[in-house]
Amino acid sequence: MATRPRIGQLRLRFYQVLLLVAVLVAWHVLTAPGLLPNFYFERANRAAFFFGEPIKIAGRIVDWFVTGEIYSHLWITLVETALAFAIGSVAGLLIGLWLGLSPMASAILDPYIKAANSMPRVVLAPIFAVWFGLGMWSKVALGVTLVFFIVFFNVYQGVREVSPTILANARMLGANRRQLLSAIYLPSAMSWVFASLHNAVGLAFVGAVVGEYLGSAHGVGYLILQAETTFDINTVFAGIAVLTAFALLLDAAVTLVERRLMTWQPRAAETDRT
């Protein structure tokens, strides 16, 4: 990557921006009422009704941030995501460690884990709404069910694949069972948790937004839900744009955290050198 000339990078960026602008312009031209003669819909404002208008969408986004209306919703969604991620990861880590270290328990639970993982967990949302109400916790619960399995499977696999030589070495160095857990199994499992970090955070976010969308009073998902019931397509698109940007920011934050925590990994080492 580093060998690619700078000018190439610049040109690449230019084309990427150009593509975005082209799409936006096409969108605008095709949907602005009366700009082009109608060729598909009978009425001039129909295209705008179905596909929204980029300028109005941008206006709505600016509006949200200028009035500050969006911040409380973003905050709620962020808190739900963070809670779902934290609870799901810790639960996945603990249960993954437990089952990874206990062949008996994992053999007994194996079919049920497979079943729970193949179940489309979004269908649990109504149940969570009944259990936890329409507030934040039903969204967190949905996110947790998504995050848990990703982390759980990674940790479970990680624990069973701990190098027997590293284990034997630690035993020869005097580690007892508890020390093996804290000095070998846990760090090794943690590295697998980090490996699934992007997926886990992404799914926590999905859980939060989908939960909000299925019934809530706050959050960006709620904004979209509300706009949809009034056929306000511009606001729906504005919500989607904000969610996408937010997801990208979240992912960038995860990458930063990952860089800091995973310095010992070979991949990080190689990119350091090149």
Binding site: T165, A168, N169, A170, M172, A183, I184, P187, S191
Partner: peptide, 13 residues
């Protein structure tokens, strides 16, 4: 004390 044939260092330390 035991020095193993293959790498036995803890990569995370």
């Amino acid at each position: 004390g035991y020095m193993f044939q293959t790498d036995a260092l803890m990569p995370w330390r």
